[in-house]
């Protein structure tokens, strides 16, 4: 008695176009599915100062450990990569998608589509992706924006780092202790020092 493949269970109901429209907020890289709306960097700046700067800083530099939103060019191959929309993100669509769905943090999905395009335009502007503060970013134009790190990604090519043989005895491996978490000393309950974070 296996599961019947393709069996209709007569459960659930049709989603109306209105219902889908309320929740279908995602944007594809080429702009497919983008919410109808538009905005300019200049419009975005004002909204950013009012609704975003408290966490991300007036210049997108990030307050405390909140994310940095600008800069980081030419850092990806360095010891201290700074990953921002300008330095890292391959598609502009991701910005408007994310800002609309998740920001401002704690008041998600309260922006209008126009505000989301304006904020996206502003962030692209401060990251030198757009150079005209009156550029109209919209559902029509978002798919055409070219991001600096568009070609910075490769498809997963794991598994990697595999040994040639599985050595079981007298393996030639270094066994000198070269680092100790105790000395780094950032484990909670130990003291208040902060370590290298994930963000």
């Amino acid at each position: 008695a296996d599961l019947d493949p393709g069996k209709p269970y007569d459960l659930g109901r049709d989603a109306t176009p209105e219902e889908v429209a309320g929740w279908d907020i995602d944007v594809l890289p080429d702009g497919t599915g983008a919410l109808v709306g538009q905005g300019t960097p200049a419009e975005g700046e004002a909204i950013f100062m009012a609704q975003c700067a408290v966490c991300h800083g007036e210049f997108g530099e990030g307050v405390d450990r909140y994310p940095v939103l600008f800069g980081g060019e030419d850092t990806l191959a360095s010891r201290d990569p700074v990953k921002t929309p300008g330095s890292y993100w391959p598609y502009a669509s991701t910005l408007v998608d994310y800002i609309y769905r998740a920001m401002p943090f704690g008041q998600a999905q309260t922006l209008t589509p126009d505000q989301a395009y304006a904020l996206t335009a502003y962030l692209l502007y401060i990251n030198f992706v757009l150079d005209d503060e009156d550029f109209v970013l919209s559902n029509e134009t978002i798919g055409a924006v070219e991001m600096p790190n568009r070609d910075g990604f490769i498809r997963d090519d794991r598994p990697d780092a595999q040994p040639e043989t599985v050595c079981m005895t007298a393996c030639d491996v270094p066994t000198q202790v070269v680092g100790r978490a105790r000395i780094v000393d950032v484990t909670p309950d130990d003291d208040e020092t902060a370590g290298l974070s994930l963000e």
């Binding site: 989603a15 209105e18 219902e19 889908v20 429209a21 309320g22 929740w23 943090f105 704690g106 008041q107 998600a108 999905q109 309260t110």
Partner: peptide, 11 residues
């Protein structure tokens, strides 16, 4: 739907 519930807005 089409409304976004409170837990879709607030933390």
């Amino acid at each position: 739907p089409p409304n976004v519930p409170w837990w879709g807005h607030y933390l």
